[in-house]
Design a binder for these strands. Structure first.
Lengths: 141, 141
DNA sequence: CAGGATCCAGCTAGATACTG
DNA sequence: CAGTATCTAGCTGGATCCTG
């Protein structure tokens, strides 16, 4: 919606040293952008496709086998969404049969870092979460 | 599905030193856990609630005003889900009128770091993404 | 104040069939 | 091979009304 309601004052964020979490105020504009990314990242297939593509370029059906469980329709839609966001590059080779190679863009590659950080967090705390859930569910019924 | 298809050989992951992204192979078990977290993080309201709660404990309607746009039902559901996962603590004070304080647990606080990292990425690249989308949409029609 | 209970519109994602 | 088109079950999330 609003592109530059604030006078673009921050720029490089040099003021905060080591990812100052507490200073991450949730102003409407910032939140909207972050929420947008979170929605894409939290999407059921997007990150699985990105992580598969991280190993190198892949063709459509190759990717379909790699992700495992994804339907043809969902793979197409996911790839289109990723391409639209500039995270994935789609290269068509007009031959018979047609050949389409998908690969991560520089932007797509850079996304792997923060996502992987979340992945590490998830792995480190999944036991904790599982037991919390078990406890919660046990208290309920 | 399968809980231990591999003979539990990794264990503590001492082999990878500084969050080796490329070594993040997507084995079925790991992916499931990560996807699980991604789903919660990518949920429309969860992270907004967590970030609001980051400032300190809050009561229900206080939180409702803070998040802005969330319905009563969704706030209740989101808080329950966060509580179930052990990310949020719910403290009831039985008085009239009733008082319920919500706060982040240690686990919830620790989640802010990787999420904030994603937030930083989102802010740094949102212009890039926006122009990629504009270009894509222009090519389409 | 802090929800629980219902009802419902809209989107998501899977299955299936067809095509250049 | 790499899609597109269609149909539909199911989940998500909002609105509204009610309660201890």
């Amino acid at each position: 919606m609003e592109t530059t309601s604030a006078p673009a004052q921050e720029g490089t964020l040099l003021s905060d040293r080591h990812t100052d979490v507490t200073a991450d105020e949730h102003s409407p504009i910032r939140c909207q952008a972050v929420n947008d990314i979170l929605a894409r990242v939290g999407d059921k297939w997007s990150m699985q496709v990105v992580m598969s593509l991280a190993a190198g370029p892949m063709r459509f059906n190759e990717l379909r086998r790699a992700v495992d469980g994804i339907s043809q329709r969902m793979l197409t839609r996911t790839l289109r969404a990723l391409e639209r966001d500039g995270l994935v590059d789609r290269e068509v080779t007009p031959s018979v049969p047609p050949r389409v190679d998908y690969s991560l863009t520089a932007l797509g590659l850079s996304l792997r870092e923060p996502v992987a950080a979340l992945g590490v967090w998830a792995m480190e705390n999944r036991q904790h979460i599982d037991s919390a859930r078990a406890l919660f569910d046990a208290m309920e019924e």
